[in-house]
């Protein structure tokens, strides 16, 4: 039974995916983003994925820093623009698996427009959204996901805005794969990320994560561990539940699971089909494009 204090542990499964010179990371004690990174890296190990064919794109925010800590081809983009950068990357290099790893504020407030249009076009992106219900890095302002009556720095008497229900938004915009887990559900999250990486089409996973410093503490919900216990207690797995019933409300169970898994023609596939039927021989086909 060895308890070591060494800095680098090669047997640690996550180690090979980390830029260890940048560890320890800046995330607070009890933050769930590191847990979701564990799930993502475990999914890559279990899939035995070709790491040269995976690119991670992040926006700004605490979860945006994932791109900086992962030793994959990764790109830390401007605020809200993770999906546009990822779209460009996917169109230029269709053979890549492009993962967008970002937060709720980045994807749904600043980048909300980009999200719905990427989903509408069914661009083959894998979106992992860390939802901590608040703007963490900028100081705890109210976000589009902040629950009603929650305290944030910009709503000291309680938020009165109705929040987005992200799975419903994603499905309505046209996402072909929609799931939600919390950082408590590590095994399920790993399995769903694996499933998402294997499939084609715009896929979206919402990961509920504690923000002990700016959400839990201000709302008197304890620390990160208390939030994890709350997820354990309140979450209810309902695979295939209609996304309209998955809104997160106070005092109600948190519905988790895989909600949507459908097939739809992808952006590149539709483009190929339309242009080759109209232009015939004059059309130059996209290289490395798998038809589906």
């Amino acid at each position: 039974m060895a308890t070591t204090t060494c800095e680098i542990a090669p047997a640690n499964p996550v180690e090979q995916f980390l830029r260890t010179d940048r560890i320890p990371h800046i995330w607070c004690p009890g933050c769930g983003i590191g847990t979701s990174v564990n799930c993502f890296t475990r999914a890559l190990i279990e899939l035995d994925a070709d790491l040269d064919k995976i690119a991670v794109v992040s926006g700004i925010g605490c979860s945006g820093r994932v791109a900086g800590y992962l030793k994959l081809d990764s790109f830390h983009t401007t605020h809200g623009r993770a999906i546009p950068f990822a779209t460009g990357l996917k169109l230029a290099r269709p053979e890549l698996t492009v993962v967008v790893y970002s937060g709720d504020g980045d994807l749904f407030a600043i980048g909300g427009n980009h999200f719905i249009h990427a989903a509408r076009r069914n661009i083959d992106l894998k979106v992992i959204c860390i939802n901590n219900f608040i703007y963490g890095m900028t100081g705890g302002q109210v976000a589009p996901t902040t629950p009603v009556s929650a305290i944030a720095t910009t709503t000291p008497f309680g938020s009165f805005e109705p929040p987005f229900n992200l799975p419903q938004l994603a499905e309505a915009a046209g996402a072909t794969f929609v799931a939600r887990w919390t950082t408590y559900h590590v095994r399920q999250l790993t399995r769903t990320i694996k499933e998402m990486l294997k499939r084609k089409g715009f896929s979206f996973i919402e990961v509920l994560s504690p923000c002990p410093t700016l959400f839990q503490r201000r709302n008197k919900q304890g620390d990160g561990l208390a939030a994890m216990k709350m997820y354990k207690q309140l979450s209810k797995t309902r695979n295939g539940a209609p996304t309209a019933e998955t809104a997160i409300e106070q005092g109600k169970p948190i519905i988790v699971g895989k909600f949507v898994d459908i097939e739809r023609p992808s952006y590149l596939g539709s483009m190929e089909q339309m242009l080759s039927s109209r232009l015939g021989d004059r059309y130059v086909h996209v290289e490395n494009l798998e038809w589906h």
Binding site: N38, I45, D52, G224
Partner: peptide, 27 residues
């Protein structure tokens, strides 16, 4: 424990078994 740890500071391995993913070398 290794999956939950947000700081990549702990991991468990089964005894008598090579740890997973050891052979997948760094890029």
């Amino acid at each position: 424990c290794g999956m939950y740890c947000p700081d990549f500071a702990i991991y468990g391995v089964k005894n008598g078994n090579a740890s997973s993913g050891e052979d997948k070398k760094n890029k």
